[in-house]
């Protein structure tokens, strides 16, 4: 009980806009992720799940509440050391790689920023770990497929040897077969390095595949936290979660008619 969680979030609130245009995107979210755990954040579009991730990663500095990573309380602006602990993989592999940088340059950059030695060895190791050979090293993103790009993005996140990996819908822009490859890769990396992961997804199957526990979000609030076993059993307490589970099993007219809005 005395071990601090790897990720601790307390009454996180994120709002966009001012005055009458103010929109609260995340409202009082609290959660804990233990060291080595994989935690899923599930919800429909606009539920605020990605916003939570952007606040934790430091991309969005306008939030209130408390965020701690590795037992260290985080301010709105992060130190360089923070980025060595916590890295992120983005949803769209076509947008997350610089179109004019070669894979080599993309991977060399974080090494140079943090002044690490043996850039050459690190780049080759990182490429091997994500299942890309050294032949990919000097290619440009336009010479890679979507799955290969996402592997490069994962290699970029891993090259700093972080302890926390934030995943923002890492497979939703990919083909189903490639999705499975990326998920297997992530599971293997997690086992090898004991990574703590937070996975944001609207796909319950992806979350069930990778995570131990998950939280369901709706309209900026955390509706329910449950384990993956409970999810598999269909053991949800909240009506919103039950509806989400039904929706993920496919549609027929009766199911669709039974849906209601959860404000």
């Amino acid at each position: 009980m005395n071990v601090p969680p790897m990720i601790g979030i307390d009454s996180l609130q994120v709002a966009f806009g001012h005055g009458a245009q103010r929109m609260v995107a995340v409202d009082g979210v609290s959660l804990r992720v233990a060291d080595g755990e994989c935690y899923g954040l599930v919800g429909e579009s606009g539920s605020g799940k990605s916003t939570v991730l952007r606040a934790v990663s430091g991309l969005n500095p306008d939030w209130s509440g408390r965020v701690s990573i590795g037992g260290v309380e985080q301010a709105a602006t992060r130190s360089k050391g923070f980025f060595k602990t916590c890295q992120m993989v983005f949803q769209d592999p076509y947008g997350s790689l610089h179109p004019r940088h070669s894979v080599d340059r993309i991977l060399a950059e974080p090494v140079a920023i943090h002044g690490l030695d043996d850039a050459d060895g690190r780049i080759n190791r990182a490429l091997r770990e994500v299942g890309l050979g050294p032949s990919f090293r000097f290619r440009y993103p336009h010479q890679l497929s979507g799955g290969q790009r996402q592997r490069v993005a994962i290699a970029r996140a891993l090259i700093l040897e972080p302890r926390v990996l934030l995943l923002d819908e890492p497979t939703s822009a990919l083909d189903v077969s490639v999705q499975a490859e990326i998920l297997n890769l992530l599971r293997r990396l997690r086992a090898t390095y004991g990574l703590t992961m937070v996975l944001v997804s609207h796909n319950l199957a992806v979350v069930a595949n990778l995570c131990d526990r998950l939280a369901v979000m709706n309209r900026g609030r955390l509706v329910e936290e449950l384990t993956v076993e409970a999810l598999r059993r269909g053991d949800a307490r909240q009506p919103y979660t039950q509806q989400l589970l039904r929706a993920s099993q496919g549609y027929d007219r009766a199911t669709a008619d039974s849906f209601r809005d959860f404000a």
Binding site: S57, G58, L59, K80, F82, F83, K84, Q87, M88, F90, Q91, D92, G95, S96, L97, H98, P99, R100, H101, E109, P110, I113, H114, A153, R156, L160
Partner: peptide, 26 residues
């Protein structure tokens, strides 16, 4: 606001490094 600029920020890249290395080439 492209993801690759966000990614550079998340690697700890400073403002000048992002402007010189990521924005100017484009």
């Amino acid at each position: 606001h492209a993801d690759f600029i966000s990614a550079a920020r998340l690697q700890g890249a400073s403002g000048p490094r992002i402007v010189l290395g990521h924005i100017m080439p484009l």
